[in-house]
Amino acid sequence: MTFTNPKHGGNLSEAIQVHGIPFEDWLDMSTGISPWGYPVPSFTEQLWSQLPPPTERLIHAAKTYYGVDDRFLAPTPGSQLAIRLLADQFECSSVAVPRIGYQEHAHAWRLAGHEVKFYNTIEQLLAYVSTNAVEHVVVINPNNPTGDIVGLAELQSVLDNTQGTLIVDEAFGDLFDDTSALNLPAEKTIVLKSIGKFFGLAGARVGFIIGNHNAAKRLANLFEPWSLSGPSIAVSTLALEDSNWQDSHRQSLKSQSEKFRNTLLRVSNSYDLEIKGNSHLFFTLFGMKKNVDRLHRDLVKVAIWTRRYNADDPEYWLRMSLPNNINEFNSRIDDIGH
């Protein structure tokens, strides 16, 4: 059986090809990546010419940053590759995955031969696990694209009733430590982390798999040796060690996201859409298909690119990343219809 590859944001080349607007004119708000990335230093020529260095310092920095010194942690070439390969580490079974969420999860488990069952609410998920309708569970926290957050008590309930493994994708979780699955027992839990979103280093392709679970350890073996480039190891280590920058960046993201939400209220009211969730890196507007599509078309007219719903989603939505210049966004919004 063949499966269609999922669609993603960041596909600005598609927008350029379809709409004929040059690259430099677009305001790309389709990815959810922080528009203010960690400042990348200049690297020596030696860092490019030699094999990547050992990852011990990177691992120590990650364990300190995530507060998991007593857990197994391994770097991965981005959390996306970990998602794609993790399902292969389990014997074929059944897995619960959010109906609206990062599509690569369902895609990976299907490719590995597992039965995928979708859930729309935490109540439906709890019903699955309490009746043994599924063996494994995937939670995206906060969810991409809805921004919904599963609380720690609910995660614990899922874990208590799950026969297999709880996999929690926390790619957008850096601003939500209190709901992190890292607060749960590690033996049945695998947590996926990424430095691409909060740190704005998506191009480095660095993530982490965390949890005292044999599947995590088997997956980590696939990434040795030299799965991360020398520059990626260097910049990721610096970013994870720089607590002053992290604190400042958290405050800035929270402040800017609140300003952006106030701007989006005007947009959502004009198009009869509802703002849901808040990852501090993106907001998602939900509503009738005709209203979502009209907003998408109007934004394209002023060269704003966003991420739209998938064909099989039960609801219609438009995800909008935090822009690097809210005033520029406001100016373009004002031009719609003029």
Rank of each mutant, 00 (worst) to 15 (best):
M1S: 05
T2L: 04
F3I: 12
T4A: 14
N5P: 11
N5M: 13
K7A: 07
K7H: 05
H8I: 11
G10E: 07
N11V: 07
L12N: 10
E14M: 07
A15L: 02
I16F: 06
H19Q: 12
F23W: 02
D25T: 06
L27D: 04
T31A: 10
G32S: 09
I33V: 13
S34H: 01
P39C: 02
V40Y: 06
L47S: 11
L47I: 08
L51A: 14
P52Y: 03
P53K: 08
P54M: 11
T55E: 12
T55H: 02
R57S: 12
T64V: 03
G67H: 15
P77M: 05
P77I: 00
Q80C: 10
L81F: 05
S94Q: 06
G101A: 04
L111D: 12
V116A: 00
Y119Q: 03
Q124K: 04
A127E: 07
V129K: 00
V129S: 05
N132L: 05
V137I: 13
V137F: 05
N143Y: 12
G147A: 15
L152Q: 01
E154C: 00
T162Q: 06
V168F: 01
V168H: 09
A181T: 03
P185V: 00
P185L: 02
K188Q: 15
I190F: 00
V191A: 13
K193C: 02
K197W: 01
F198M: 00
G203N: 15
A204L: 05
A204N: 06
R205E: 09
V206T: 15
F208Y: 15
I209H: 08
I209W: 09
I210G: 07
G211E: 09
N212E: 14
N214D: 15
L222F: 13
F223I: 01
P225E: 04
S236M: 04
T237W: 05
A239D: 10
L240D: 03
L240A: 15
S243W: 00
S243Q: 13
Q246R: 14
H249A: 09
H249Q: 15
Q256I: 08
K259T: 14
F260H: 11
R261Q: 15
T263A: 09
L265F: 04
L265P: 03
V267N: 01
V267E: 00
N269P: 08
L273C: 15
N278L: 08
S279C: 04
H280N: 09
L281H: 14
F282C: 02
L285T: 02
G287A: 06
M288C: 01
N291F: 01
N291C: 12
L295W: 02
R297Q: 04
L299E: 08
T306R: 05
Y309G: 02
Y316S: 10
W317Q: 10
L318R: 09
L322D: 12
P323Q: 02
N324I: 07
E328Y: 00
F329T: 01
S331V: 06
D335C: 02
I336F: 04
G337F: 06
